[in-house]
């Protein structure tokens, strides 16, 4: 087997709430190989958001080791984590999180801005990503002028544009009607078929069916 994209060993995350310490994650071990489409399923409060934040390098574990694409990341400083997010991870959020009053094209360009990509290349790559998601005729539209499904596809284009090793999707269908949700999941499946590694976090068993492997989380622990 290739070097795993994600390798979590004994990951714990404790929140210090003054007098009590809340253990959101307890010794989580998880490997995700390149090309996998993994769904992490758990009810609210199960720690799946915390896990998503750690996998996404938005947060650091308080215990254990995390190697992302072979490199340890648990001790990186804020700038180091930002660099990893910029190069290695593409996010898709439940609430799309597009930049308001900014065209679809400029939204997709944003990650490249922070990688220092040349302007002409940025625009070319952003166009290509939007075209790939069938949004060629929506590039100049602002998020408020797009439907939920379209907004989420812009978000997927943004996640793809920097060609990251990992796409991390947090309840990507949560705000969508069934048809749009289905479309978005279809996009993920297709991306996965073309070799993308995808980690999908959801509470919905039906959504999780789209993935090739399912991992359940309960009370901060992975269960079989």
């Amino acid at each position: 087997m290739d070097t795993p994209i994600i390798s979590l060993r004994g990951i714990g995350r404790t929140y210090d709430m003054g007098t009590v310490a809340v253990e959101a994650l307890r010794s989580v071990d998880l490997d995700v190989a390149p090309g996998e489409f993994v769904a992490i399923i758990g009810p609210s409060g199960s720690g799946k958001s915390t896990l998503m934040h750690i996998i996404g390098c938005l947060d650091r574990p308080t215990a254990g080791t995390y190697r992302l694409a072979g490199a340890p990341v648990e001790d990186l400083d804020d700038d180091g984590l930002a660099r990893v997010r910029s190069r290695t991870i593409g996010f898709v959020f439940q609430s799309y999180n597009l930049l308001p009053r900014t065209s679809a094209l400029d939204n997709v360009v944003a990650p490249l801005l922070y990688q220092g990509v040349k302007r002409s290349d940025r625009v070319r790559r952003a166009r290509a990503a939007l075209e790939r998601l069938g949004l060629a005729d929506r590039m100049g539209h602002e998020p408020s002028e797009l439907s939920g499904g379209q907004q989420q596809r812009v978000a997927v284009a943004r996640a793809l544009v920097s060609d990251p090793a990992l796409i991390l999707a947090d309840e990507p269908t949560g705000n969508l009607d069934q048809a749009s949700g289905h479309d978005v999941l279809e996009v993920f499946r297709e991306l996965n078929r073309s070799g993308r590694t995808i980690v999908l976090i959801t509470h919905d068993q039906e959504v999780a069916e789209a993935a090739t492997r399912q991992v359940h989380i309960r009370d901060g622990r992975l269960v079989a």
Binding site: A82, Y114, Q115
Partner: peptide, 16 residues
Amino acid sequence: TREIGIRKAVGARGRD
């Protein structure tokens, strides 16, 4: 604030 969060998520450093 949210825009700042989005920008950070897609790779902006504090300095950016």
